[in-house]
Design a protein around this nucleic acid. Structure first.
Length: 465
RNA sequence: GACCCCUUCGUCUAGUGGCCUAGGACAACGGCCUCUCACGCCGUAAACACGGGUUCGAGUCCCGUAGGGGUCGCCA
């Protein structure tokens, strides 16, 4: 049997971090098993579904490398099929019409709660004769679920989970307007798409028991379930906008690499011994549902940062330069010409070690593209005392001897200049750094001076003298 | 409230009855490297929620308590 998994987001918002992880696990499991990974857009709620959300989700998945193996299935295009299945259930006596009004249902719920029970539909139309139907009321269609016994799910993550059938009510299949509810359409679509493994957030665990009833009523094979724990915010509460409930495109904006985000998400709730840095291929090889933990985990930006820094350093320079230039576009005081590009490319290894995100990378590489006079940070400006400027004027003269203009030669000259003036290297290096980069922190200053070249290097020093 | 699930360092986790004096990673702290900041390297501190069992032996199995989460829509 070929494994078929699916990721089924509803386009009512962006692709958040939890959804991204669910998609990743589905993708990984399918790849690991040599199966297929499908996408389904759950847009039966036409009022809340938006095209923008759908695009955001699709492009987010694409960015993460988690696009479906086939074109996505749009649930709303299958309305007829959903209705047909409901009709069949009706004909087979597994479903019935219910004429309850919203008020009536609400009353039922408050009453149940008052009695200390789960708020369930009490089945009042289950065996009622159709002739009693009130006039002018469009009924909903409800599934006739078993009254006695229990339902057990052998969840691949949670283990065996048992629920009394008395806790499962006759839920709605078709709304009064004839459209299917989520509970109905997932089952029909999972069956029609031949899904073998349903991997999703464990907020759906309770729904699974209802869905099992529907599968059984249709005599359909019940797929395997794997309910993965939710991701919480740093405070242990549900992920909110304040924490990480941002769309994945927000992480892209913040300068995270897709591979880093996937690696982080993979390790959130899943482990393979002590391994931390796991490539995509390695993940496919190792991933299994047994390794998924059963408790919720908290989203930790610091660890994401660390991982991202690692992936940044490992990334080949070529692609990174373009990403930096892209982010530098439009910044004042910069000349993004071919020369700047070359300097950034040369200086990249030195800059990479100092950044955790592409944003930081762009920030710390920006000085290579700056035009004098450079904007100074407060700390850099404080470095340029009168004594320091005098030292810089002297250095300018000493630099006339710099041939070739190489890192080694420049280092020798600067060191010698410090010695000649009876000061420590830092007394020269720091003001020089301020002059060259506008900051008090940067890659090695001899490297910077070498990359800047004689003309630009001198110009920047002159500008602060 | 009812039902379901969960509980190892601050965080992510390893651990499937003896290898645990509980391991790794991030964060924190200290040090080395050093022209700054990083990177890197070395080191320190830090946890089995609690209470009962079962067993020769429990972080690992069972029960209870506490705490946390999820679900209870003609939303998905």
């Amino acid at each position: 049997m070929t494994v078929i998994t699916r990721f089924a987001p509803s386009p009512t918002g962006f692709l958040h971090i939890g959804g991204a992880r669910t998609a990743l696990f589905n993708w990984l499991f399918a790849r690991h098993m040599g199966g297929k990974y499908l996408l389904r857009i759950e847009d039966t709620d036409r009022a809340r579904s938006t095209d923008a959300a759908m695009q955001a989700i699709l492009s987010g998945l694409d960015w993460l490398g988690l696009s479906g193996d086939e074109a996505p299935v749009y649930q709303h295009s299958r309305l007829d099929r959903h209705a047909a299945v409901a009709r069949e259930l009706l004909a087979r006596g597994h479903a019935y019409h219910c004429y309850c009004s919203p008020d009536e249902l609400q009353e039922m719920r408050t009453e149940a709660r008052k009695l200390g029970r789960t708020a369930l539909y009490d089945g009042r139309w289950r065996d009622r004769d159709p002739s009693e139907a009130p006039a002018g009321v469009d009924p909903v269609v409800r599934l006739k679920t078993p009254l006695q016994g229990e339902t057990v799910i052998q969840d691949l993550v949670q283990g065996p989970v048992t629920v009394q059938n008395s806790q499962i009510d006759d839920f709605i299949l078709l709304r009064a307007d004839g459209t299917p509810t989520y509970m109905h359409s997932v089952v029909v679509d999972d069956h029609d798409m031949a899904i073998t493994h349903v991997i999703r957030g464990d907020d759906h665990l309770n729904n699974a028991f209802r869905q099992v009833q529907l599968f059984q009523a249709m005599d359909w094979a019940v797929p395997a379930f794997a309910h993965i724990p939710l991701i919480h915010g740093p405070d242990g509460a549900k992920l909110s906008k304040r924490h990480g409930a941002l769309g994945v495109e927000a992480y892209r904006e913040m300068g995270y690499l897709p591979d880093a985000l996937c690696n982080y998400l993979l390790r959130l709730g899943w482990a393979h011994g002590d391994d931390e840095i796991i490539s995509r291929d390695q993940a496919i090889d190792w991933f299994d549902l047994d390794g998924v933990g059963r408790s919720a985990s908290r989203f930790d930006m610091a660890k994401l940062d660390n991982l991202n820094g690692h992936y940044l350093r490992e990334s080949p320079d070529e692609g990174i330069v373009d990403l930096i230039l892209e982010r530098l576009e439009g910044r004042p005081g910069l000349a993004l010409n071919e020369q700047a590009r070359e300097r950034i490319a040369r200086g990249l290894p030195g800059v990479k070690a100092r950044a955790k995100t592409l944003v930081e990378l762009a920030d710390s590489a920006a000085f290579y593209a700056a035009t004098p006079p450079l904007a100074m940070t407060d700390k850099a400006a404080a470095l340029l005392t009168d004594d320091a400027r005098a030292l810089m004027r002297g250095l300018l003269e000493a630099l006339a001897e710099a041939t070739p203009w190489s890192e080694d030669v420049l280092e020798a000259i600067v060191r010698d200049h410090a010695e000649q003036n009876g000061v420590k290297l830092g007394a020269v290096a720091q003001p020089l750094r301020a002059a060259l980069t506008g900051s008090n922190a940067s890659p090695g200053i001899f490297e910077v001076l070498a990359i800047l070249g004689p003309d630009e290097g001198r110009a920047r020093i002159t500008a602060i003298c």
